[in-house]
């Protein structure tokens, strides 16, 4: 990827930004931050692009992006007809209310207070920053630790695995764990298929014979498309 092409300011929505709530000010602020970052050669903290305090959805998407290793703009595209990030936020919020549990509030608080720069070339948060986030989460005990894992599995598999079940899973013995497919949409948008450079079983939008050729590179599936296509 050419560095020189990255000098163009980007007008894409910040990671996790709810498209319906984007104001001109936040777009410009995001653009200005990106320009500044490009000029001085540093990366942009995911939550620093917006002038307004980040919403829970933005924080949730940043948390999810860090833990899954997938660009925030992939988890929540600018024009998001599926709105899966909202579905998932609602699911976890409802889960926390029903349990009841403060673990999700803890996860959001930790994410808000952790600097998570976005690797500008691909929109992916770097490993050392992810590791700092995970360390902070796991320092708060098993509840946030295993809830974080449930959230990752939700993005990857479209299914909800109870944090307690993950905690109690035998280390090696094969066993079935109950899970709930959140929705048909969630199953078909699971990220594990894309991380495997494949498509969900039973939901192909590709054409006859594609399987005989090599798939596109992994970055095509999980990295920030808006940035990548300018290279």
């Amino acid at each position: 990827m050419s560095k020189s092409t990255d000098q163009e300011p980007t007008l894409q929505a910040p990671a996790g930004k709810d498209s319906t709530s984007i104001t001109r000010r936040s777009v410009l602020a995001g653009a200005a931050a990106a320009t500044a970052a490009a000029t001085i050669g540093t990366d942009v903290p995911a939550l620093a692009q917006a002038a307004d305090p980040p919403t829970d959805l933005e924080v949730f998407v940043t948390l999810s992006s860090a833990l899954t290793g997938i660009a925030g703009n992939k988890l929540k595209p600018f024009a998001d007809s599926l709105d899966l990030s909202k579905d998932y936020l609602t699911w976890v919020t409802d889960w926390a209310a029903k349990k009841p549990s403060t673990a999700f509030t803890t996860l959001l608080q930790i994410t808000r207070s952790t600097s998570l720069p976005v690797f500008k070339d691909d929109g992916i948060i770097k490993q050392p920053d992810v590791d700092r986030l995970v360390k902070a989460i796991e320092g708060k005990g098993d509840e946030p630790k295993y809830l974080a894992r449930s959230i990752v599995l939700m993005w990857y598999l479209g299914s909800w695995y109870e944090p307690d079940d993950l905690k109690n899973l035998p280390l090696t013995a094969p066993s079935f764990i109950k899970h709930t497919v959140i929705s048909p949409k969630a199953y078909t948008q699971g990220w594990v298929w894309r991380v495997a450079q494949a498509q969900p079983m039973g939901y192909s939008d590709l054409q006859f014979g594609y399987w005989t050729r090599e798939p596109p590179p992994l970055s095509d599936f999980i990295a920030n498309h808006e940035t990548r296509k300018r290279s």
Partner: peptide, 8 residues
């Protein structure tokens, strides 16, 4: 667990 780029 593995997270972030290490997981992908």
């Amino acid at each position: 667990g593995l997270f972030g780029p290490a997981l992908t």
